[in-house]
């Protein structure tokens, strides 16, 4: 459970998050909203890259906002980025190993080998483990980020539009991987995506942001039928309208 209370973020005059209070339950939660709603900003606050003007975020009884940015990964916050950030000059294996060796609390090289191999199996990249990332196409890079997000002991996995730009077949693979995360790791997952089919397939529960404000939260089907949510999306996102009509 992630308890967000009174979270406000300002960039100069822009209020990117405005007094957001919401509780994310365990499992996979959707976080949706039109462009510029504040979804990535919320992730940046959780990662420690953006300091909020006010508010608190408690996870498993820990006030996340008091942890320095790089220590949050060690606590268990993991994320993927809207623009994919797999490390080009390293091999696929080393990409995942890097996260493991900076977040694992103990364990030697055998434990590391096992954990990384398991994570690569989990996303189906075991056979390209030794390839350099810069030689791989977009889908593999996205999946490397997924492996980086689940290796070791994640507690909170933040996925920022992991499906963006993927064709349908690969989105289906991605969806299966996301849905398997809670069982595999016990982590809470927050999924940001504009693909409502993906969100509906993965998330029983969702929250909606619009202009930095929480518009609605609850079971995904109810939230997507909410009039305020429909109004926010009207003209903005045809995918949602298509899904709902």
């Amino acid at each position: 459970m992630i308890d967000v209370d009174g979270l406000t973020v300002r960039f100069g005059g822009v209020v990117s998050l405005s007094d957001v209070t919401v509780t994310f339950p365990e499992g996979i939660c959707g976080l949706i909203g039109p462009n510029g709603a504040g979804k990535t900003t919320f992730f940046n606050v959780l990662s420690g890259f953006v300091t909020p003007a006010s508010g608190s975020i408690r996870a498993d009884g820990v006030e996340l906002l008091t942890l320095p940015d790089f220590k949050r990964a060690r606590w268990g916050v993991r994320r993927t980025f809207q623009t994919e950030q797999a490390i080009e000059s390293l091999s696929v294996f080393d990409n995942v190993a890097t996260v493991y060796e900076h977040t694992a609390k103990s364990g030697g090289s055998a434990a590391r080998q096992t954990a990384v191999s398991e994570a690569l199996d989990f996303v189906g990249l075991a056979d390209v483990a030794n390839d350099l990332v810069r030689t791989l196409p977009a889908k593999e890079r996205r999946f490397i980020e997924m492996a980086r997000a689940v290796v070791g002991q994640p507690r909170l996995v933040l996925l920022d539009e992991p499906g963006a730009g993927l064709p349908d077949e690969e989105t289906a693979q991605l969806s299966a991987i996301i849905r398997a995360i809670p069982e595999r790791t016990g982590a809470t997952v927050i999924l940001v995506d504009h693909d409502m089919e993906l969100v509906q397939a993965c998330c029983e529960w969702s929250a909606v942001l619009d202009f930095g404000r929480l518009l609605a939260s609850g079971p995904t089907t109810e939230v997507l039928a909410d009039e305020k949510v429909l109004a926010a999306y009207l003209g903005g996102d045809e995918a949602l309208e298509d899904t709902l009509s």
């Binding site: 990662s47 060690r74 890097t98």
Partner: peptide, 8 residues
């Protein structure tokens, strides 16, 4: 940022 997010 990606390095920080990886715990480095």
């Amino acid at each position: 940022v990606s390095a920080l997010a990886a715990g480095i």
